[in-house]
């Protein structure tokens, strides 16, 4: 339980980059992607197009925390993948969001 709370806290202090960081982790959950592919994928799943300033602000933070890592590439478009820490943080965050969503729906249904 404590480990889960710790994993969930990994994304907590990203400030304005929290949401973009979460979307990036969700995008990378399917497999390694480079920046352009992430923006396309995020637009498809969440309907928002991240600008490069926001995207790389969040990517740099995720990389610094060890939640994602770059892969070697000959191409100038460097792909990234989730690390095991990133996977745990994503799982913990999604679980906590799911709990909030379920509670909200239950309360709305009984209102």
């Amino acid at each position: 339980m404590m480990q889960k709370a710790k994993d969930d806290a990994e994304l907590a202090d990203f400030g304005r980059f929290s949401e973009p960081a979460l979307l990036i982790l969700v995008s990378l959950a399917e497999g390694p992607r480079h920046g352009y592919s992430m923006t396309e994928d995020i637009e498809a799943i969440a309907g928002v197009r991240l600008g490069p300033g926001t995207l790389y602000g969040a990517l740099a933070r995720l990389e610094a925390r060890g939640l994602i890592e770059p892969l070697k590439s000959e191409d100038r478009r460097n792909p990234y993948r989730l690390t095991s820490l990133g996977e745990r943080a994503l799982r913990a965050r999604l679980d906590s969001m799911m709990t909030v969503a379920r509670t909200g729906q239950r309360r709305l249904a009984s209102a």
């Binding site: 480079h34 920046g35 352009y36 923006t39 197009r49 600008g51 490069p52 300033g53 926001t54 995207l55 790389y56 602000g57 990517l59 740099a60 100038r76 478009r77 460097n78």
Partner: peptide, 29 residues
């Protein structure tokens, strides 16, 4: 990040919003 950032930047349509986003990113960096 310069090269990959440049690739993503080049793929987006120029707009005031994009300029603001990049400026905000530069200040943050």
């Amino acid at each position: 990040y310069g090269e990959e950032f440049g690739a993503v930047l080049a793929s987006q349509r120029a707009s005031p919003g994009l300029v603001l986003d990049v400026l905000g990113g530069a200040i943050d960096a």
